[in-house]
Design a protein around this nucleic acid. Structure first.
Lengths: 235, 235
DNA sequence: CGCACAAATCGTGTCGACACAGAAAATACA
DNA sequence: TGTATTTTCTGTGTCGACACGATTTGTGCG
């Protein structure tokens, strides 16, 4: 609940960076669930916390609304968008397809430099898993798949994939922090398999592995949700 | 070049609708190519034309930037995003996939009311083709596929599909207005086929027809572009 | 005691003004 | 005449203030 870092009383930041600054902070706090879903965001309160006028804050909120991370209630307030547990099916459907498509494209269109970046992300991911750091694992997993999407060189897919990964981070964050924190090392191996398929430019295998990877993640989330449901409705 | 409609000197509009109003106007003008790609958008000029302060105009621009319709050059100006003819491949790839996925989902998940809407859009489309009105055809085609995407009930796919359809409108608009305006009636028949497959809940056929439909559109755009290229490089 | 209505409160939507960055114009110099 | 430097100018980024809508609180009447 405490402000993550007290911003300088004023200035220090360059002109034009204000909205971006607010955007980054809010985005991280929303994805990390520091700002819980459904919580109203008060522009004035924010402007006091971040030591700047409402204008750049409103700009950040408009951007976040465009990405669906906040919801604007006209003439009332803007709230952190709720995670809709009843409509998770479209999410699972879309992220599975995007995992497949981006991995296929990466296998087809990647350059050597792309693979370097992907390997670096994978190393960070593996490190997070080794350290049993769930939060870091969630974040690095996002970056890993983002790197694959970037290697595919299709901005449309990449943008949708990033959006889905961020939504996924919120969901994962919700469950990993409240339930078990055992981090399955299989994910590391699955990622290695993806990398190998991409490097070999084996599109069919990349597709297959990505599909299986997505299925496994979906299955795990489903398990966590059902566990959660049971927990929420005690006998 | 003339302002489409002189807005009331002031007021008349309800509170909270300002940014939305500007957004709609700009969006239409960008997609209709009334605002040519690359043209800088002057906030002050716009505020004078639309008789309102720069604040709601900036909000509209931020939203449009989020959708990629305008590009913000920091501390300089925002310009209408250029159509990148060299990178059309990702566009073709994505719209083909989205046509397929949304049509499949529509075949699977549509309700009776969805079909009514789709049929209504198809009627408007057919009317535009009959009237040989290229501009109207482009617009109604967009609405037709948007209705199919809506029937699929996956917001992620729907959002991407809408974005692609709008970009497609810009491209089509560019070529239909400068080259031949003969409107192929086959499109009407293809649309009918899509509707039939959706109604029959025949997912495989819906996929197949959507794929063929997309291929045909892509082929036609490609033809127009190659014609255009020849035109731009005379011997 | 409960309900309809009025007043106050809260927060957003919009406005006009100022400050700074970048580009264009003007000037100086070789 | 061409190039480097300064100045002007245009237009964005940010600010503080006001106005209106929605909610909440307070009040009067049944």
């Amino acid at each position: 609940m405490a402000p993550p870092s007290k911003p300088e009383k004023s200035a220090e930041r360059k002109r034009g960076s204000g909205a971006q600054y607010v955007y980054n902070i809010l985005r991280n706090e929303i994805i990390d669930l520091t700002l819980e879903p459904g919580r109203p965001i008060d522009e004035i309160q924010l402007s006091e916390r971040l030591q700047m006028s409402r204008t750049p804050i409103r700009e950040a909120l408009v951007r976040l609304a465009g990405e669906g991370l906040v919801t604007t209630l006209p003439n009332r307030s803007t709230v952190v968008t709720n995670i809709d547990f009843l409509n998770l099916h479209p999410f699972f459907d879309a992220i599975t397809l995007m995992y497949r498509v981006t991995t296929r494209l990466a296998a087809d269109a990647h350059k050597a430099s792309d693979l370097e970046v992907i390997r670096a992300r994978q190393a960070e991911f593996a490190e997070a898993v080794m350290a049993q750091d769930a939060l870091s694992m969630i974040a690095t997993n996002r970056e890993f798949h983002a790197a694959i999407a970037a290697a595919g060189r299709n901005h449309y897919y990449e943008a949708l994939c990033l959006r889905l990964l961020d939504e996924g981070r919120r969901i994962l964050r919700l469950y990993y922090s409240s339930f078990d924190d055992r981090l399955p090392r299989e994910y590391v191996d699955e990622h290695e398999g993806l990398i190998a398929a991409i490097e070999a430019r084996d599109i069919a295998r990349a597709d297959e592995l990505a599909s299986a990877h997505a299925d496994q993640i979906v299955a795990q989330i489903r398990t966590m949700i059902s566990r959660d449901t049971r927990h929420k409705i005690p006998l």
